[in-house]
Each structure stands twice: as structure tokens, then as C-alpha cells.
Simulated assay, not measured.
Amino acid sequence: MSLKLIKLDAIDSTNNYLKELARNTTIVDETVVVAKRQLKGRGQMENSWQSQNGKSLTFSVLKKFTGFKIDDQAYLNYAVSVGVYNGFKKLEIKNVTIKWPNDILSYGKKVCGILIETQLAGNEIVSSIIGLGINVNETSFIELPKASSLRLVSGKDFILSEVLEVVCTSVLDALNLLNANAFQKIKTNYEENLFRKDQVSSFKDINGNLFNGIIKGVNSDGKLLIETEDEKIKAFGFKEVTLLY
């Protein structure tokens, strides 16, 4: 697969750049913007994403949809997560899992962050800009004990362009399943690879209360399903619960 690439030296955010480009020009589906340096990268809920020049990958992908309902938005997150997971498996990264909602881990440490922004028309998602930050060849994460890189978990250096090609292709393959309405397949793949699924784990709820539970999966609204100590399965939205590990 030949990617439709726009390469930049430095930019505040590849997501912002792609949004402006889509707003002001007619841009082709599956365009990818990659920056050597991203100055103001963002994660979920306006968290910042730290990247290292020449060692990290920061890029954004534009994907257009037809007939994709807003009510099915959770499957967009599932598809992107599964796509990155599949890409890492092709790169022979071991012990890859998806930490709900969309952090990609290897050996329990974060190696990829995802930020998804959607463009709406009526009750449909017409396009999405997917930002990805991948720790590739870094070997040091000061004050970030839960972060790692493909280099650290595999013991080998990677060529950034090859990682970009493999991960982008896998993400776009997964996103095309949405246009084929293969929602259940995507959700099943996502759930099969959830971090700490079916294991007793500790959590903190939005009020700061600690409790033990078992991750059982996710629902069609994107919520995490946790079996609590009273054997009831409860659904938690983003920021309503924190997994402690």
C-alpha cells in the first residue's frame, strides 16, 4: 500500500494541520500528515504528548465515511486501537495490549497514544482525523515510569518510515471495516486484547473511591464493563474510572 503522505519538519500539531487543510482544500481520503517535530502534541482530554525528534513518530490520518452514524462512534475508537495493535504485531512487538479506552501498551507500558477528532453532518460522522504518537527508538523516559518504546520492549532499532507504513496500513484496514459495517468483528478484536481483561484489578471511581473488579469488555457506547465485588457488571464512561496498576 502506498501512503498519501505529507511530510513536515515541524508543526504545532499534525491533527490541527490536517483539520485546517481539510477545511480549506479538497483533500483526498486516507491522507497522512507526518511531522519530524510536533511542538504542541495533544492526547485525550487536552493532555500533552511528549515526543523526541528523530526517535518518535507523530502523525495524523484523515478517514472519510459514508453512512456512519454518530451512535456508532465507539466503534471508531475500537477500530483505530485494533489497527495499531495489528500493526505492532506485524512489527513483532510482543505482549501488546489495549488499555481502555485507547492506549497501546507493551509489557504493561504505554508505547502509543491516540487522539481521535470527528467531523459531523447531521447524525453522521463524515470524516475523522486520527492522531497517533508512537514511542519508537527512545531509550529514556524521565518521570514517566509507565512509558516505554518499541526499542526498549524489543531490543532493536526501527526505521521510522517502516513503522509508519506498517501501522498506517493496519489502521486504515481496520477503519475500512467500519465502512463495511463489520462492527461486531471490530469490537470482538478489541475486547480480546484488552489490558487486564478477566483479571482482578484495582480501580478508583470519579469520587475517589477504591474498589476491586474484573474487566469483562466494553459496550456499544464505548463504556468499560467491570464486574464488581457484588458480581454486578457496571458500565463506566471515560474519566469515570481509573485502572490502578
Rank of each mutant, 00 (worst) to 15 (best):
N219S: 07
S220C: 08
L244C: 08
I27P: 03
K204E: 14
L21V: 03
W100E: 07
I159L: 11
V200C: 10
F238V: 15
T25A: 13
I226C: 01
S48M: 13
F65G: 03
S56M: 04
R151Q: 13
L243M: 09
A22R: 12
S170N: 04
K94V: 09
G83F: 00
L160Y: 10
T25E: 15
E231H: 14
L132M: 10
A35H: 00
A35G: 07
V33E: 04
E229A: 13
K4D: 11
S13T: 07
F158C: 04
V218S: 00
V167H: 06
K204V: 14
N137Q: 03
N193R: 12
E143Y: 10
S140M: 13
G87K: 02
N179L: 04
F158E: 02
K89N: 09
L144G: 03
E143H: 13
E231A: 12
V167D: 05
S127T: 05
N123G: 15
I186Q: 07
D29H: 10
E192K: 14
F65W: 04
I226L: 04
V171D: 00
D9S: 13
A180S: 15
I11H: 07
D71Y: 11
K204S: 11
Y78P: 04
L178R: 04
I159G: 05
Q199Y: 04
Q119V: 14
I226G: 01
N53Q: 15
G113T: 03
D12R: 10
R151G: 00
A22H: 08
R37N: 12
E240G: 02
L164M: 02
G222V: 02
I116F: 01
Y190G: 01
A74R: 02
T26F: 11
K40R: 15
S56V: 00
S148E: 09
W49G: 03
S149G: 07
E162V: 11
S149V: 06
I114G: 00
E46W: 04
W100K: 06
A182D: 13
F65N: 04
K110N: 12
C112H: 02
A35S: 11
N77L: 08
S154Q: 08
I104S: 00
L224H: 03
L120Q: 11
N212G: 12
N77R: 08
K197S: 10
K36R: 14
K94I: 08
N16W: 01
C168T: 15
E92I: 10
D71W: 08
T242F: 11
V82T: 04
K110F: 10
I134Q: 01
N137M: 02
K232F: 11
L62T: 02
